[in-house]
Amino acid sequence: MSSWQSFSSAPRVPRRNAARLRLDVPVRLRFVSRDSKASLKNISCTGAQIEVDKPPRIGEFGELKFGDTVAFFEVIWLSGKCIGVEFDQPLPKQDVTALRQTQTRPERLQRQRLENEARKWVTGAIH
């Protein structure tokens, strides 16, 4: 059974059962047909609100990456450029709260981004 099949058969956690952390953090989304840069607006252990340039359809599955965390999700609602996603497995609380440090230290995040871009340039990963 694939992870996507097990996701659709997994019991759903009641909506708004988990506390949400409000943010504005850049993240990576991956869908079957494309990758997308996005902005994480809020997150809990069970789901998130994400702003995207080209919103997917309700029911579409994807992957969210931030830092070392990867979460598989299903789009459960859509409003303009914002989507609501439900994770297939609840995220560890420490992963969610670690985002608070990223949000409260934007200079550190910007420095990490610049270092990553410089590393890619030096290794020839970007031209």
Rank of each mutant, 00 (worst) to 15 (best):
L29F: 06
L29D: 03
L29T: 02
F31Q: 05
F31M: 06
F31S: 04
F31A: 03
F31K: 04
V32N: 09
S33Y: 08
S33R: 12
R34V: 02
R34D: 02
D35G: 07
D35N: 13
D35S: 10
S36V: 08
S36L: 13
S36Q: 13
S36M: 15
S36Y: 06
K37Y: 11
K37A: 11
A38E: 03
A38I: 04
A38W: 04
S39F: 14
S39D: 14
S39K: 12
L40P: 00
L40A: 02
L40M: 03
L40S: 00
L40W: 02
K41D: 10
K41L: 11
K41F: 01
N42R: 04
N42Y: 01
I43S: 01
I43R: 03
I43A: 02
I43F: 11
C45H: 05
C45Y: 01
T46D: 11
T46H: 06
T46M: 08
G47P: 10
G47F: 03
G47V: 00
G47C: 01
G47M: 03
A48W: 02
A48S: 07
Q49V: 12
Q49I: 11
I50P: 09
I50D: 03
I50G: 06
I50Y: 04
E51V: 06
E51D: 05
E51Y: 03
V52R: 01
V52G: 05
D53W: 05
K54F: 12
P55Q: 00
P55K: 00
P55C: 01
P55I: 01
P56C: 06
P56I: 07
P56D: 06
P56T: 06
R57T: 13
R57V: 10
R57M: 14
R57K: 12
R57N: 14
R57D: 13
I58L: 08
I58G: 02
I58Q: 01
I58E: 03
G59I: 07
G59D: 05
E60D: 13
E60V: 07
E60M: 11
E60K: 06
F61I: 10
F61V: 09
F61M: 07
F61D: 02
G62T: 09
G62M: 10
E63D: 01
E63S: 02
L64I: 13
L64D: 03
K65P: 05
K65F: 09
K65M: 08
F66P: 00
F66N: 06
G67Q: 08
G67V: 07
G67E: 12
G67Y: 06
G67R: 06
G67F: 09
D68I: 13
D68V: 14
D68R: 13
D68M: 07
D68P: 10
D68Y: 09
T69V: 14
T69P: 07
T69C: 13
T69I: 11
V70K: 08
V70E: 10
A71P: 10
A71E: 14
F72H: 10
F72A: 04
F72L: 11
F73Y: 07
F73H: 05
E74R: 14
E74Q: 15
E74N: 10
V75E: 08
I76T: 15
I76F: 15
I76V: 15
W77M: 10
W77H: 15
W77I: 09
W77S: 15
W77D: 14
W77G: 12
W77A: 09
L78T: 15
S79F: 14
S79A: 14
G80V: 11
G80K: 15
G80S: 13
G80A: 12
